[in-house]
Design a protein around this nucleic acid. Structure first.
Lengths: 131, 131
DNA sequence: ATGATCTGTAACCCTACAGTTACACGACGG
DNA sequence: CCGTCGTGTAACTGTAGGGTTACAGATCAT
C-alpha cells in the first residue's frame, strides 16, 4: 500500500545528491545497510556531520532509518532516484549526437535568423537530418 | 582532438544540477540555443541572477557560450551528464526490486549478525535470489 | 542503579550561493 | 562620435550548508 507511484520531491533529491559525502553514503549503503556510527566511521569527518547528512538524506527519502536496539540502521531507498533518471532521460538522445556537429548546427541555426527569432522555433528539435 | 573521453568533474555537475533554476535553464536550452538575455526573460528572477547561474553551468561544462555579435549564445553540452547517468546506473538494479522486500531482507540480514559484522560482508550484493 | 555506548541535536563558525542594484564594457546603429 | 543594447561583474544582503564541539536521551551490560 502506497508502494507504487509515490511522488517524491525531485527538488530534495537533486539537492541531497549535490554533496559528495552524501553520494558516498548512498554508495556505501548500496553494499548493505549499516547503523549510523558504522557509516560515520567510514568517513574522515565527525560523526555529527554524518548525522546531519543522514538527516538530509532522510528528508529526501533516499534512506530510511529503523531502530534496532540502540542502533539506528539506515538502508537505501533508491525510489526517489527514478525522478533523476527520468529527468536525465530527456538528455540521453542528445549525447548520442556528436558534440561538434551539434555545435555547428546550432551556430548555423542561430546566425540564419540573427534578429528574428532566436531559437529553433517550435518543436523543431535538432532533427538528425541536419547533422 | 580531445573530443572523446574528456573527464568532467562530476562534482561540479551534481552541484550545478542542485538548483531548480539551473535545471530549468538546461531544459530550456534543450529546445534550442539562446542568448543570455533571452534565457533570463524566461525566468522571474533578475538578469544578473541568471548570468550567475550560467557561470556555474559554464564551470560545470554543461553549457558552452560563443559570442555572436553583442550576444552571447548559450548552447547545451550534455556530455557531463553521462557521469550522472553512470552513477545512477549502479542504482538501477535496486529499484527493480520491491522495496518492502528489500527492507525485510536487509533487516533480517542485519539482525542475523547483530554484534559481529554489521553489513553483508564482502560483495554479497543482495542477490535477487533473496526476494 | 550506574556507567558505557549509540545517536541526534543545539550552538557556533565560516563559506558558498541565490538574489538584488549599480556599474563597466564591447558591439551596433544612427 | 554617441546613445543604446546585451552582457558580465562587483558589492552587498540573507540564508542555507557543512564542519566542529558540547550536550541530552535512550539502550544495554553489569
Amino acid at each position: 500500500m502506497r508502494n507504487r507511484s509515490v511522488t517524491y520531491s525531485s527538488e530534495a533529491t537533486f539537492q541531497a545528491l549535490a554533496d559528495p559525502t552524501r553520494r558516498a553514503v548512498l554508495d556505501l549503503l548500496r553494499r548493505g545497510s549499516q547503523p549510523a556510527g558504522e557509516i560515520a566511521r567510514a568517513f574522515p569527518v565527525s560523526r555529527p556531520a554524518i548525522s546531519k547528512h543522514l538527516r538530509l538524506l532522510r528528508r529526501a527519502h533516499l534512506v530510511q532509518e529503523h531502530r534496532q536496539g540502540r542502533n539506528r540502521v539506515y538502508h537505501l531507498n533508491p525510489e526517489p532516484l527514478r525522478a533523476v533518471d527520468s529527468w536525465l532521460d530527456q538528455y540521453r538522445t542528445f549525447w548520442k549526437m556528436s558534440l561538434t556537429n551539434l555545435k555547428r548546427f546550432v551556430e548555423a541555426e542561430y546566425s540564419k535568423e540573427t534578429n528574428q527569432g532566436h531559437a529553433p522555433k517550435s518543436n523543431r528539435k535538432t532533427s538528425k537530418g541536419d547533422l
